[in-house]
């Protein structure tokens, strides 16, 4: 929390990313505010289509434009707005300052180059290093992410690695230029639980070592609870709640957050405490014609007529706890 007293590393305000489709404009991200302090682990949770991934991809301008477009908002990276930057300037920031890892590492690794060549390429893109030095760095990075016999594996191709090992390679590549922020977009969703645990541990260790901030995007409340310090909950393109992880799970304020937490079956509760799950009825509203008021109103138990009038702002109701709901 002390990280928030200083100037944040990344500060997103009023961000709107829209996509033009045949049916109309999809408001994938519709006014998102969030900030990450130095060395902080921020969890961004929400269900598919809530805009969490689009937000992250917008930060690095990895959105295909068109059909995508940043319609409004600012992305302040250490005080500098990234929105007006062109691709050339963005490239200098990618990997070097902000790196990203994806859910399915196979699609982000080029199958025809060895992993060593790919890591070395990232290094050489941003630093003056000879091929030899860059390859040495690749070996060192692979060792750091605990890939056995890195001197040998550096010459292997992506398909020769298992899913968990590939994610390690991705992490090695992302960290090879010592970024200040790592965006991890569902990094463990495609992995088995025991492998997921390994990768989450690894991310924690890497954070200790490199001191970078992590923006962890996930749909898994458990992963957030065990990894993040602060959490942003997104719903239908907007932030509905933001709090420290303990606060969020102890006293969730937004009805959506409450519903989300209650709808998860818990392995840590005794089996005989089993009760019927509290499902949130209905489905996520369309982002094509979002309802004017609170986007959760149609599924909300506490909704009143006022909820459908105007969208509630994200307000700090308690120190460090923000919520966008008229109940507070």
């Amino acid at each position: 929390m002390d990280a928030r007293t200083a100037e944040p590393l990344l500060e997103i305000s009023g961000l709107k990313t829209y996509f033009k489709t045949d049916d109309g404009t999809v408001r994938a991200v519709d006014g998102v505010d969030l900030a990450i302090g130095r060395g902080e682990v921020l969890g961004v949770v929400g269900e598919s289509g809530c805009g969490k991934s689009v937000t992250a991809h917008t930060v690095l301008k990895l959105i295909q434009m068109p059909p995508g477009k940043i319609n409004d908002g600012r992305i302040l990276w250490q005080g500098r707005d990234l929105v007006p930057l062109d691709l050339e300037e963005m490239r200098k920031i990618r990997s070097k300052e902000i790196a990203i890892i994806f859910q399915e590492p196979m699609t982000s690794l080029n199958p025809v180059y060895t992993v060593g060549e790919q890591i070395a390429e990232v290094v050489r893109e941003h630093e003056h290093a000879s091929r030899r030095e860059a390859l040495d760095r690749a070996v060192e990075m692979l060792r750091l992410v605990q890939i056995p016999t890195p001197e040998r594996r550096v010459h292997d191709y992506p398909h020769q690695f298992s899913g968990g090992m590939r994610q390690r390679v991705m992490i090695a590549m992302a960290l090879s230029c010592n970024p200040k922020l790592l965006i991890a977009d569902e990094p463990t969703t495609a992995l088995d639980v025991t492998i997921q645990a390994q990768i989450l541990d690894l991310l924690g260790e890497m954070k200790e070592r490199f001191g970078m901030a992590i923006m962890l995007i996930t749909h898994d409340m458990g992963v957030v609870a065990e990894t993040a310090q602060r959490v942003v909950v997104m719903y239908a393109g907007r932030v509905v709640e933001e709090a420290s992880v303990e606060e969020l799970f102890d006293r969730p304020l937004h009805p959506y957050t409450q519903g989300l937490i209650r709808s998860i079956p818990r392995v840590d509760r005794a089996a005989d405490q089993r009760a019927r799950l509290e499902a949130i009825s209905g489905t996520v509203p369309s982002l094509l014609d979002p309802p004017p008021g609170c986007r959760f109103a149609a599924r909300c138990k506490f909704a009143t007529a006022a909820c459908t009038q105007a969208a509630p702002d994200l307000r700090e109701v308690e120190p460090g706890h923000k919520v966008a709901c008229i109940l507070y």
Binding site: A197, A225, E226, V245
Partner: peptide
């Protein structure tokens, strides 16, 4: 045991001992 301990639990205050499995299947 390892499988159960690897499941992330939505309770940030619970400090559980995770049994870390080496390697992969």
């Amino acid at each position: 045991e390892a499988l159960l301990s690897a499941v992330p639990v939505p309770a940030p205050r619970a400090k559980r001992q995770r049994i870390r499995l080496e390697g992969e299947v």
